Simulated assay, not measured.
Amino acid sequence: MSQTPRPARPGLKKLAIVLWSVLGVVLVVAAIGAIVGGDEEQEPAAAEQELTDEQRAEAQERAGIPPEPDAETAAAYVAALEAIDPDIVHGKIEKVVDRGRSQCQTIGSYPDDREHQLAQAEVRFSSPDHPEGFGPEVAEQILDITHAHICPTY
C-alpha cells in the first residue's frame, strides 16, 4: 500500500514562523543590550572613569576656580548678597556659591579688567525675576562681595 503524502498543515507553518520571529527578536534585544552596555562587567570600567574629589579639585584649581568655601564663609557670603537683594540668592544657596566660584575664575583670568569682571557678574548673577541681571550698580556690589568672601587672594 502506498501512502500519499499529507498536505502540510497551515497551523504548523504559522507556528514555525512565529517561533523564528520571536527567536530573532530575542537575539536582536540581546545584541543591543550587549552593545549598549547592559553587561555587568562594563560597570566597574565606567566607575573608574569618574573623577575623584581630589582630581576634581585639582582640575578646578588649574582652571582658576577656588575651592568650595566652608559653611561659615558660604553663610556670610549668602547673607551679604541677600542684604543687597534677597532675589540674588532666591533660595538657591549652592547655585549662588557656584556662581561666585565661577566669578572668581573671571577675576583671576582678568585681574586688571574690572569692566569685564563687572560685565560677567551682571550676566552670571540673575534670577527668574531678574533674567537680565540686577544692573551695573548691583553687579559691582556682587563682584566686591564675591571677591571678599569666595576668593580674597585673587
Rank of each mutant, 00 (worst) to 15 (best):
D39M: 10
E41S: 14
E41G: 02
E41M: 09
Q42S: 15
A45T: 06
E48K: 08
E50G: 08
L51C: 02
L51D: 14
T52I: 06
D53W: 01
E54M: 00
Q55R: 10
R56Q: 12
R56Y: 11
A57Q: 07
E58D: 14
E58G: 00
E58W: 01
A59C: 02
E61T: 05
R62F: 01
R62Q: 11
R62I: 08
G64A: 01
A71C: 07
T73I: 12
T73L: 13
T73D: 12
A74W: 04
Y77N: 03
V78F: 04
A80F: 10
A80T: 09
L81V: 04
A83S: 15
I84N: 05
D85M: 04
D85A: 00
D85K: 05
P86T: 03
P86Y: 11
P86F: 10
H90K: 02
H90I: 12
H90D: 15
H90P: 04
G91N: 00
K92R: 14
E94R: 13
V96D: 01
V96F: 13
V96E: 05
G100Y: 08
Q103N: 01
T106S: 06
T106Q: 04
I107E: 08
G108M: 09
S109F: 02
P111I: 08
P111A: 00
P111D: 02
D112R: 12
D113V: 05
R114N: 08
H116M: 02
H116S: 08
Q117S: 10
Q117M: 00
L118P: 00
A119P: 09
R124I: 06
F125R: 00
S126C: 05
S126R: 09
H130T: 06
F134P: 07
G135Q: 11
G135A: 02
G135K: 10
E137A: 11
A139Y: 05
Q141I: 00
I142E: 07
L143A: 14
L143R: 08
D144Q: 12
T146G: 14
I150W: 09
C151W: 04
P152D: 12
T153P: 03
